[in-house]
Design a protein around this nucleic acid. Structure first.
Lengths: 227, 227
DNA sequence: TCCTCAATCAAACGTTTGTTCGAGGTAATA
DNA sequence: TATTACCTCGAACAAACGTTTGATTGAGGA
C-alpha cells in the first residue's frame, strides 16, 4: 500500500522543519528547503502554518509542553528528596532522548528578535519558576536569596541540555568526517561513544550524586554564614 | 593616519557584527544591516573580510583565543586544588563579563552547516581536551572512564555560559518591556537583579563550593564502586 | 446532478540576499 | 608631477527569500 508516506502533509512539514531548524537554525532554512524535504508544495506551508514562524511556534509549543510534563512528574511529595532529584533527572534525560531535535530547536533559537517566540518562552519560564520553588525550599535552600536562586535555578536542565547539544553536534560532525584533517584528529580521540541505555544510567547516577552533593555544599555554606 | 582609518572601518564592522549576531544569530543578519550599523559602505565588508562568514570566523577566532587564555591561567601546579578551581571560575567569569557578546556569538552559532566554523571549533575542543585532562586526574577522577569524562568535561564552562546566556536574553527582554502582558508579569517577578561585582563574587563562591562538593561526590562514588 | 470545501498545485509577486565591479578619492613615494 | 597603494563609494548582478494568487482535484452531502 506504500503507506509509509501516509503521514499527512502538515506532519511532514513539521518533521522536516524540526530536523532542518535543529541543524541549521531557524533563519538559515528557507521554506523551499522545508517543502522539498517534506515532499510538499511550497504553498502548503503557509496554508497550514500561516507564516514561516508559525512552524517555529508550533515546535516550541510542543516542546515546552512535553518538557513540563517531564519535570512535573517527580513522584509526589511522599518520596525522599534524593529520589525526587533522581526521578527528575531520569525524566529529563528521557525527554531529551525522545525529543532531541525539537529540544535543540526550542532551546537554541534566540528569541529576542522574534517577539512571538519571546512571549512563549517568557510564559513558560514564569510557570517553571512558580512550580519549582517549593522543591528548592524543601531542599534547605534559602529561596529568598536571589543570588542563590539565580545560581541553582535551571541548573539540572542546563547540564542535561548541554550534553545533548554536544552530542547532537558531535553526531553530525561524525557524518561529515573525512573532509578535514582537523576533524579526523578530533574523531580519533574519543573513538565511538555509545549513547545507549547503559550510558544514560551511568550518566543519571553521576549527575544525581554530583547535584545532591553540590546542593548540600552550598546549603551547608548558607547555614554557617547565617549562624 | 591611513592605518588608523583602516582599523576604524574594519573594527566598526567587527563590533557591529558582534552585536547583531549575538542578538539575532548569524543567518538572521544581513550585510546591509551590518554596514548600516557600522556606518560603512556595503562593499567594505567583502573588502575586509572576504565574505560574510569571514566576520564570523574572525569573531570566533578572537573569542576562543581569549577563552583559552582565561582557563589556561590557574595559578600553576603549586596551588591547592580548591584554589585552582576557584581561580578558573573567576577567570571564566571575568572572561564572560568582558566578552559577553563575542562569547554569545561563538557559543551559540550552530557550526554543523558552516564547515569553516566547524573546523575552528573542532580544533579548539581538541586543544582543551589535552589541556585539561591532567587537572581531572589530579582531582581523583578516573580519566580513563569515558562516561565520567563525558560528564565532567566542560561542566564549569557550561554552567557559566548558560548564566550569561540567560542574563543576556533577559536584559534584552527588559529593554522591550511594555509590549506584552506576559512579559510584564515576568518582569515584575524578580524585579531588578544587579549583576555587579558583589553578585559575581557570590556567584563564584557558590559555584566553587557546588563544584568541589559535586566532584567529591562522584570521585568518592567511584572509589566505593571499585573497591 | 449539483454544490461545497478542504487539499494541492504551478506560477508569479515584489523584496532582499551575498557578492562583484569599476570609477573615484587620498596620501605617501618616486 | 606622475605613480603607487590603499580606501571608499554607488550601482548592478543573479539567486533566493517569504508570501500570494487563481486554478484544479476529488471526496461527501443534498
Amino acid at each position: 500500500m506504500a503507506e509509509e508516506q501516509k503521514k499527512d502533509s502538515k506532519q511532514r512539514i513539521f518533521d522536516a522543519a524540526v530536523s532542518l531548524f535543529a541543524r541549521k537554525g531557524f533563519s538559515a532554512v528557507g521554506i523551499r528547503e522545508i517543502a522539498k524535504t517534506a515532499h510538499v508544495n511550497i504553498s502548503m506551508i503557509n496554508y497550514y502554518f500561516g507564516e514561516k514562524v508559525g512552524i517555529l511556534k508550533a515546535i516550541i509549543d510542543e516542546c515546552y509542553d512535553k518538557y513540563y510534563r517531564a519535570i512535573h512528574d517527580c513522584g509526589g511529595e511522599a518520596t525522599l528528596r534524593e529520589e525526587c532529584v533522581q526521578r527528575i533527572i531520569k525524566n529529563l534525560i528521557a525527554f531529551f532522548r525522545e525529543n532531541t531535535e525539537i529540544a535543540m530547536v526550542s532551546f537554541n533559537t534566540i528569541p529576542v528578535d522574534i517577539p512571538a517566540v519571546l512571549e512563549i518562552k517568557c510564559r513558560w519560564v514564569a510557570e517553571e519558576r512558580t512550580m519549582t520553588t517549593p522543591y528548592f525550599r524543601e531542599f534547605g535552600l534559602n529561596t529568598d536569596d536571589p543570588i542563590q536562586m539565580n545560581f541553582i535555578r535551571g541548573l539540572l536542565t542546563t547540564i542535561i541540555t548541554e550534553h545533548f547539544r554536544c552530542r547532537y553536534t558531535w553526531e553530525h560532525i561524525v557524518q561529515r568526517a573525512g573532509t578535514s584533517h582537523v576533524m579526523k584528529n578530533y574523531l580519533e580521540h574519543d573513538a565511538e561513544m555509545k549513547y545507549d541505555d547503559h550510558f544514560y544510567e551511568q550518566f543519571a547516577e553521576l549527575l544525581t550524586k554530583f547535584y545532591i552533593h553540590g546542593v548540600r555544599g552550598i546549603s551547608h555554606q548558607l547555614q554557617s554564614n547565617e549562624k
